[in-house]
Simulated scan of single mutants.
Amino acid sequence: MGGMQWVGRAPLVAAVAEAGALGFLTALTQPSPEELAREISRVRERTDKPFGVNLTILPTMKPPPYAEYRRAIIESGVTIVETAGHRPQEHVEDLKANGVRIIHKCTAVRHAISAEKMGVDCISIDGFECAGHPGEDDIGGLVLIPAAADRLSIPVIASGGIADGRGLVAAMALGAEGANMGTRFLATQECAIHDNVKQRIVEASERDTRLIFRSLKNTARVGRNKVSDEVVEILKRPEAEFADVAHLVAGAKGREVMEQGDLDNGLYWASMAQGLIHDVPTVAELVNRIMTDARAIVGERLPALLRETVSA
């Protein structure tokens, strides 16, 4: 379970860890480095299994105190960090010097190669199907995953549009060492978002997302609602700027959607994997189902490729 803003909190992360998967707290969901340290402690109260922290670096006018968040991660004894966003060189150097393993999330092979040179331990490669920022190349996982695996010497984790055992097996067949899911974990019982959002994900099809900010060269995939439709229409105008939609896409409004359930009050992140999500299980039920289905595919369906064709 990759890092998700307003979602990666202790109860969900601990449930993912207890189920045998790897969950990530989202550092910037917490209002301060001190609160992040407390949230790390809350996970440890619930599980003794491994978990990590996501640190997303955003090029903002008033950046948060990244170095202090990073120090909170290190001093809390967390040994796995998922970085994403802007160039993470400074963070990689400090984290590595303190024995932390780093998974860097990116959307292009060229960026993955750059991150490998910086010293990250693993790449999470996000295909065009993903929620959040898929980059500007529009390359789906079927091509992007093996392209990354071919060019990198460090492990690759597949991300974007994966929601079940079929996706896990496909990812590994394409050269990945595993799969990273976000949207699928939104629709679980332990995820502390409003039931309206979960039910919308269950009801939605693979077509029910919108790509916003395309004209601004900062493409983002979100769930389709009145707000995302309005943002797309406004930004179709040749003279349109970010300021014209800022009031619609504010992070505080997105948080209200997740917590209060008014689906037309702001944006919510969702990938094309919505079309593969049909229920709201517990995390343990979900992870067990994924592994059971994956093993069945490998044990029953794929062996057909190895059978000799018998002529009549």
Rank of each mutant, 00 (worst) to 15 (best):
V7G: 08
A10F: 08
P11H: 10
A15T: 01
E18C: 08
E18Y: 03
A19F: 01
L25Q: 11
L25V: 10
Q30S: 11
S32G: 00
R42L: 13
T47Y: 04
D48S: 14
N54C: 05
K62R: 14
P63G: 11
P63A: 11
E68N: 02
E68T: 06
E68L: 02
E75R: 07
V78E: 09
V81Q: 05
P88I: 07
I103P: 05
C106D: 06
C106N: 06
A108K: 14
V109S: 10
H111Y: 10
I113T: 09
A115Q: 05
A115F: 13
M118L: 15
C122Q: 11
S124W: 02
S124N: 09
D126I: 06
A131D: 11
E136S: 12
D137Y: 14
V143W: 06
L144Y: 07
S159I: 02
I162R: 08
A173I: 10
A179K: 00
N180F: 12
N180G: 07
T183Y: 11
F185D: 10
L186R: 03
A187S: 15
A192S: 12
A204C: 14
D208N: 12
R210M: 13
L211V: 13
L216V: 00
K217S: 15
T219K: 11
R221W: 09
V222F: 13
V222S: 11
E230K: 15
E233D: 13
I234R: 15
K236A: 07
P238N: 01
V245S: 07
H247M: 04
A250Y: 05
V257A: 08
Q260V: 07
G261N: 00
W269Q: 02
A270W: 12
G275A: 06
I277Q: 10
E285M: 05
L286T: 09
V287N: 03
M291P: 03
D293E: 15
V298T: 14
G299T: 05
R301S: 12
R301Y: 01
L302T: 09
L306S: 14
